[in-house]
Computed example of a mutant assay.
Amino acid sequence: MAHPTKRRGYRQIVCGAHTYRWRFVAGAEQGTLTVVPDGRSGQRLLVALPDHRDPWLRPWDVRPLPAPVIPSFVVRAIAHGLEAGWSPQAPGGPFRLALT
């Protein structure tokens, strides 16, 4: 079965010679960055970001907000995942990583 060309909520990013799709979801306790290889199946990268939470879900939490999750942040997360052993072309379950 062919992969859809667009995935709901995912944005495309090019890192080196490879293309990925990514999305960020902020939660009450932490945010999650999901990176998947574009156009083929493979291992997903799930990055837990405990400092990136949705301020609307916890208005009493007055900690300062971290830097926004922008494409340059995603490129650094992909590089960190690759250094830690993430293999986007390999089949298997998600590769989990935590960044603070």
Rank of each mutant, 00 (worst) to 15 (best):
Q43F: 07
V25S: 13
P64R: 13
P55T: 09
G31V: 12
Y10D: 08
G92C: 10
G16L: 12
M1H: 14
L82V: 10
L99R: 03
V74F: 01
H3I: 00
R96M: 05
G93N: 10
G27W: 01
P50G: 13
R58F: 00
A90V: 00
D38R: 00
P55W: 04
F95K: 02
R53K: 07
W22Y: 15
G92L: 08
I78T: 02
D54G: 10
G81A: 04
D51G: 13
Y10N: 04
V35W: 00
V14Q: 14
Q12H: 07
T5I: 05
F73V: 12
A67P: 02
L65T: 10
I78N: 02
S72D: 13
A67Y: 03
P50M: 06
Q12T: 13
W56F: 10
G81M: 03
A2R: 14
P91S: 12
V14I: 14
R21T: 04
Q30L: 09
A48H: 11
P50E: 13
D54I: 06
A17Q: 11
P91Q: 10
A26Y: 00
D54P: 05
L97N: 06
P94R: 07
W56G: 15
C15D: 13
S87V: 06
P68H: 05
Q12R: 07
L33E: 03
R58E: 00
P91Y: 06
D38F: 02
L57R: 14
F95C: 07
A98D: 03
M1N: 06
Q89F: 01
L45G: 01
T19Q: 15
R58N: 13
A79C: 08
K6Y: 10
G16H: 04
R76I: 01
A98P: 01
L65S: 10
D51M: 02
R11I: 01
G85K: 01
L99H: 08
V36A: 09
V75T: 14
E83C: 08
